[in-house]
């Protein structure tokens, strides 16, 4: 469904991604792991059109989308839940969700109801300002807002960032449900254990390259992953 081939991204003289390749297939949850500065965020910026690769190609459903602009991504069927959630602080929850459907034509009332059934807390808070929500609620709102565009592929950037473990648990359960209802998911995470338990496959990034890849179950038991991301010493 999404295919990245030999993508190189440069920030001026600095090369952040040294030719990475990976793919995400229909119906999968794929996770991209890596330490700080490994290039995860740059990869997502590239996949949301904020920073075009200087070499390589990105295809989505067989279409070349390497040079597509950021604001055209949601029309393609790719929705991005940005790092730090970035909800509109002075809009109500409902207005935030409305904005998610900005590019759509016709009524989206059913989807609004669907979001409220996935995230009942948002229904309770729907007249409240986005900026007054807790971190977990904001994350749910950010996901809900992205889903309002009816994406085929959902990109999640660090959905667990700054959230309590119990809320992370809930959010990951919901991400699983989103996949089950037909949306493919690519999730970038620092919380490797959570991400791998949820995902089908994983890619591990180091210093701007993809170091290795495997099924999520195998990665979860891979000593290299356990050493670096799950805080275990190598026996």
């Amino acid at each position: 469904m999404l295919k990245v081939e030999n993508a190189v991204v440069r920030y001026g003289a600095i090369t952040a991604l040294h030719g990475i390749s990976f793919e995400v297939n229909q119906g999968e949850i794929v996770t991209l792991l890596g330490a700080n500065g490994a290039g995860k965020s740059t990869t997502l910026r590239m996949l949301s059109g904020l920073h075009a690769p200087s070499e390589g190609q990105i295809t989505f459903d067989g279409r070349d989308i390497t040079r597509v602009k950021a604001h055209d991504f949601s029309a393609l069927g790719i929705s991005h839940v940005p790092e730090g959630r970035r909800i509109f602080p002075q809009m109500t929850v409902e207005e935030n969700l409305d904005m998610g459907a900005f590019g759509r034509k016709g009524s989206y009332h059913d989807d609004l109801e669907r979001m409220y059934s996935i995230f009942p807390i948002l229904k309770e808070r729907r007249k409240q300002m986005g900026g007054n929500l807790s971190g977990g609620e904001q994350q749910m709102l950010a996901i809900g807002r992205a889903l309002m565009a009816q994406p085929k592929l959902l990109l999640l950037d660090e959905p667990s960032m700054g959230l309590a473990p119990m809320i992370v648990e809930t959010i990951f359960r919901i991400i699983g449900e989103i996949r089950d209802s037909g949306t493919t998911v690519l999730v970038v995470e620092q919380n490797a254990a959570q991400a791998l338990r949820l995902a089908d496959r994983g890619y591990v990034m180091e210093n701007g390259v993809i170091a290795f890849t495997d099924d999520a179950q195998n990665l979860l038991h891979d000593p290299r992953v356990r050493a670096v991301y799950l805080g275990e010493s190598v026996e």
């Binding site: 949301s48 904020l50 950021a70 604001h71 055209d72 991504f73 949601s74 029309a75 929705s79 991005h80 940005p82 970035r86 909800i87 509109f88 602080p89 002075q90 809009m91 904005m99 998610g100 900005f102 590019g103 807002r145 992205a146 565009a149």
Partner: peptide, 10 residues
Amino acid sequence: EDEVAAESLG
């Protein structure tokens, strides 16, 4: 309110 978020919503 948030230009980057607005852009990501199309």
